[in-house]
Nucleic acid binder design. Structure first.
Lengths: 158, 158
DNA sequence: TATGATAATGATAACCATTATCATTTTATT
DNA sequence: AATAAAATGATAATGGTTATCATTATCATA
C-alpha cells in the first residue's frame, strides 16, 4: 500500500508533477478495488470519501497511475475503459463469457512464447500484446441459451 | 464478386430485409478495398459514385455485412472501428507497429491450438478471440526513435 | 513567510464515432 | 394501383472521454 504510494510520489516528482490529497485519495481507493473498475465506478467510490472531488480529476489520475505503472488500462471493446492493478501483478490475459460477461484472468507461457516467436519471424520487436478469448463459461454452458452479450460485434479479430 | 453479392442477397432475404441500390453499391466498393477500412473512409469512397448517399446508410450496411459474414469488425482500440473482408479470408491476427502504425496480418496455428486448450482448461467453450501484438517493425527498428503511436494506452492487456 | 512560478482542481463545454429518430421514399406483395 | 413493410438521408442524440479555463493549491526560493 505504502509502497505503491511511494512509487506514485516518485513518479510524480520525477515528472515535475505534484502529489495532492485528491491523487492520494484516488490511489488509496483504487488500491482497495479488485478486478476491473471503470473511471465512473472509481469516481463514485471516491466521492463517498470526498464529496467535492471532480470526475475529471479521477480520469486524469487514472491516466497518471497508468503511466506510473500502478494501473493498467483494459479495453474489452465495449467502449468503456477499465483499470486494474498493475504493480506486483503478473501479466495476464482474459477469458470473457459472452453470456454473463464473467471474466477470468489467465496466463499461458506457451502462448507468450509463441507470440514472441511469431513477432520475431516477421522482424518485429515485440513490446506488448492484447489477447481476449471469448466463449461460454461452464455455468452458462449448463443453462440453456440466454441472451445478453458484452458487445454486439464479432469477437474474432480478422 | 458476384458470389459475395449472392451471399448478401441471400442473407437479406433470409432476414426479410431488402437488397437496394445503396447496399449493392456499398458492397461493391467495400469489396474493392484492401486491408482495414473505416466507415468514414468507405463513406467517402462510396460518395464519389453516388453523391446522394447518406453516412448512416454506410454505417448500417457495414453492420449488415458483418452479420452476413462478408465483413469483419476490427477494433484496434483507438476508438475507431475498422472493417475488413471476411468471406473467403482466413482468420488472422495482427501485429501493429507502435511507431508507424503499419500493421501486418499473421496467423499461428500453434497459438490457436494453445488458446483452445487454455479455454478448455478453464471450462470455457471458446467461440472467438482478439489478439493484437504490438511492437516495432523492422523499418522503424533501423531508424532512430521517433514518436507517434496509435494509442496512448499501454498495449499489454493486464 | 511572502512571492512568484507552475501545476492541479472542479465545473463545464467540447469532442467525435456511432446510434436513434423520423419524415419521406422505395420496395415487395396483394 | 393500393397497402404494408422496410430503407433512406438528414439530423439530433448519445455517452465516454478530453479540453478549456478561472480559481486554488503547491513548491522553491529569497
Amino acid at each position: 500500500m505504502t509502497e505503491e504510494k511511494d512509487l506514485f510520489a516518485e513518479y510524480l516528482s520525477r515528472n515535475n508533477l505534484r502529489m495532492t490529497p485528491q491523487r492520494g485519495l484516488i490511489l488509496d481507493v483504487f488500491l482497495r478495488t479488485e478486478g476491473h473498475i471503470t473511471s465512473e465506478e472509481l469516481y463514485s467510490r471516491v466521492k463517498r470519501k470526498d464529496r467535492s472531488i471532480g470526475q475529471a480529476t479521477v480520469y486524469r489520475t487514472l491516466k497518471l497511475l497508468s503511466d506510473a505503472g500502478l494501473a493498467r488500462e483494459v479495453d474489452f471493446g465495449d467502449g468503456i475503459l477499465r483499470y486494474e492493478h498493475d504493480y506486483a501483478h503478473e501479466h495476464h490475459d482474459h477469458i470473457i463469457c459472452e453470456r454473463c460477461n464473467r471474466q477470468i484472468e489467465v496466463i499461458d507461457e506457451g502462448i507468450e512464447r509463441l507470440q514472441e516467436r511469431l513477432a520475431k519471424r516477421h522482424g518485429f520487436h515485440l513490446t506488448g500484446h492484447r489477447m481476449y478469448l471469448y466463449g461460454i463459461c461452464p455455468e452458462c454452458m449448463k443453462r440453456k441459451d440466454r441472451k445478453g452479450s458484452l458487445r454486439k460485434t464479432g469477437h474474432t479479430s480478422g
